[in-house]
Write a protein that binds this DNA or RNA. Structure first.
Length: 107
DNA sequence: GTTGTGACACATT
DNA sequence: AAATGTGCCACAA
């Protein structure tokens, strides 16, 4: 009943809970939001990004641990600097998921 | 109301 | 091994 507008709100909540120095995949965020199939919707949700100040989209990467070329809000280079500033090592736009993927999904 | 697209993920070829 | 196709959900035209 009328739970249609919750979609993005939930996703934003998850992304905002990502601890500093960690990254999460779209599927990860979607799963934490309660919908493992919303990976695409997560991308769209961040695309509309109503509050980039509290939604660190640069901490969200795809399954490969790579940033989306379409994302490039200011250039992949900017993205890389932001993640490195958080303590995440970035190589050619790739991040080491095994070390930096947000696994402590414990809000 | 239907069709097409999209900042993904997974399966199959 | 890589590349392609399909599935998922929501939004725009």
């Amino acid at each position: 009943m009328a739970e249609s507008g919750n979609s993005y709100q939930k996703i934003y909540e998850i992304v905002k809970q990502i601890p500093k120095g960690c990254v999460a995949s779209y599927g990860q965020v979607a799963a934490l939001a309660g919908n493992p199939r919303w990976a695409r919707v997560v991308g769209y949700a961040l695309h509309v990004n109503p509050d980039p100040a509290h939604i660190p989209c640069y901490r969200v990467v795809n399954r490969e641990g790579r940033l989306s070329d379409a994302f490039a809000f200011g250039g992949v280079n900017e993205q890389k600097l932001l993640l490195e500033a958080e303590g995440v090592e970035v190589t050619d736009g790739y991040v080491d998921m095994e070390l930096y993927q947000w696994k402590k999904f414990r809000i």
